[in-house]
Amino acid sequence: MSGEHILDTDGHDNGDIGGVKIVKEDGIGYSITVNREDLLTAAAGCKEAGFDLLIFVGGVDMPDTIKLVYRMVSTKKVNKLGMIIKTEVPKSDPVIDSVTSIWSSANWHERETYDLLGVKFKGHPNLTRIFMPDDWVGHPLRKDYKDDRMIPFEGFTTNGSDKNE
């Protein structure tokens, strides 16, 4: 694990965590992209490198896959560096390892991602819905989500008038 020295450099070539290259992106800072099989290894490597505070876990519904984003912060160093792990799961089989064994705080964030996007986290202690009622059908943040009570809404146009009228 050579993730330690990224905390002191500011270039584009910033070492690696578990053999995965760390890149610096404009909008989000340092990030690594891993395959879903390698997530646990990468997360454990990050924790070992000093990223001890998991801020959030988020999901994005992409056309064919669901993209997962893990944001963490290192509180060990003075500059409190942040880092994002990105990974993807296919929509046909949205299963990934849970990181609750590494950071307990992943618990609710993973439940939220399961509730709203339908990603199943393997090894989660209590993977139930968190915002929606337990008997809810479907996952609201999916782009193709529909239910009977939904009002068709195309959004407002930029000049302020409602397209639906």
Binding site: I28, I55, F56, G58, R71, V73, S105, W108, E112
Partner: peptide, 28 residues
């Protein structure tokens, strides 16, 4: 720590807005 993670697909509307509210993490 209140954070927003936004993805743009090049249209006037955001593709995804992920909000992290600190109260959610603290209440946990």
């Amino acid at each position: 720590d209140l954070g927003y993670y936004i993805i743009s697909d090049g249209t006037p509307k955001p593709y995804r807005v992920k909000i992290h509210g600190p109260s959610f993490g603290n209440l946990q």
